[in-house]
Every structure is written in C-alpha cells, then in structure tokens.
C-alpha cells in the first residue's frame, strides 16, 4: 500500500510534466521494435573510416540526402589528400584534379582503346600522412560518395586501369566530381 498527498492545483502542472518526462524516458529506453531503424552518426562515421561494407548504411545513403551530406563531411575531414574538383576551364576530356600534395589524372591507354589509366601522384615534398592512402573517394554533385580501393603507391604514384564503362571513369569525367584520398 502506498499513500500520498493529493497535489494541489499548483503542484499538478509540475507533476504532469514529471510524469511525461518519466513516461517518455521509459519509452525511449525501451525502444519500439516496430520503429524504423536509423543509422547513427557514429555508425556513419565508422563506415566513412573503414573499408568494410555496410549494406544498411549504404541503403540509408542511397535514400537520404542529409545522411549523404553528413557522410561526405566525414570523408572530407578524414581525407589524407583532397584533390577536389577539376578546374572549370579545363579543356581535357577527363580533367585532372590538383590538390595540395596530390594530383589525380586519367590517361587513355595507348594499347587498349576502351581502357584508361587512373594516375594518382603524391608530391614527396609535402608531409606524408601517417597511413598511406588506400581508398579513392569520388563524390558527385548529389553527394553520392563512392569508394574505390587503391593499390599501394610506388615511387609516389598510385596507378590502376579502368574500363570505358567503369563507375570511376564516369565520375571523373564530370569536373564537378570531388576526389578525396584516404
């Protein structure tokens, strides 16, 4: 048995507020299994900082532009090099991206007409990051950021071949596509 004083009219509003707080707190802590799942900022950040795939995060990024912007922000902050977007005045078919300490350019293969060579050149005069870049991130104008694993650098150059129909090439053709290395 519990016995308490009946609150007066002055005390009731405070009691109502407190009741609502307790009830809402209990609701939050219990959760709702039927509620939609959300990707936390921490998980998005972890995804941005790990090469591992996460289908749930990828699905969220595909449908949620705000999540994409946040994700892009994490990638930009964590990038070891930011070659960025191409200069608007470039006349080259696939314009190069030149950032501090790093250039990304594409050369058509002389041997196979449907192949292109993506060349990432690291300036040895700039301070090297603790971890050498291992991923090329390309972000389009709609904040879709795509990650491509990189081979290791050799003589300050990272180089790989892509085909005409590759996603990398399609993205790099657009001068507004931002390139990041991490």
């Amino acid at each position: 048995m519990i016995e308490i004083e009946i609150p007066d009219d002055e005390g009731l509003p405070a009691a109502r507020d407190r009741f609502a707080e307790l009830s809402d707190t209990r609701q939050l802590l219990r959760g709702d299994p039927s509620a939609s799942r959300k990707i936390s900022a921490g998980r998005l950040y972890a995804y941005a900082n790990s090469p591992a795939a996460d289908p749930e995060v990828e699905a969220e990024l595909a449908r949620n532009v705000a999540a994409r912007r946040a994700y892009r922000g994490y990638l930009q902050a964590a990038a070891s090099y930011r070659p960025g977007v191409a200069i608007a005045a470039s006349t080259e078919a696939i314009p190069p991206r030149r950032g501090v300490g790093c250039t990304v350019r594409v050369e058509p293969s002389q041997a196979e007409p449907d192949q292109y060579i993506v060349i990432v050149e690291i300036d040895p005069a700039q301070p090297a990051p603790e971890v050498p870049p291992s991923t090329l991130v390309l972000c389009d104008v709609e904040d879709n950021c795509h990650r491509f694993p990189l081979p290791s650098a050799h003589r300050g150059v990272i180089q790989f071949i892509v085909t005409e129909d590759s996603a990398e090439l399609e993205l790099l053709r657009d001068p507004r596509t931002e390139a990041l290395l991490r």
């Binding site: 050369e107 058509p108 293969s109 002389q110 041997a111 196979e112 192949q115 060579i117 060349i119 050149e121 081979p151 290791s152 050799h154 003589r155 150059v157 180089q159 790989f160 071949i161 892509v162 085909t163």
Partner: peptide
C-alpha cells in the same frame, strides 16, 4: 609490350584491366 602515358610500368593479364601485383 607497349608504352603508356603513365608514370608506372604495369603487368597486365592479357588485354584486361587487371594490374597484377608484380607490377611494382
């Protein structure tokens, strides 16, 4: 064996685009 306008020389499997690890 052909020349490319790229700073690194590469070993490629056939006509494909796979740069073999021995390339470095």
């Amino acid at each position: 064996i052909t020349r490319e306008r790229a700073p690194l020389s590469m070993v490629v499997l056939g006509r494909g685009s796979e740069r073999l690890p021995v390339s470095d």
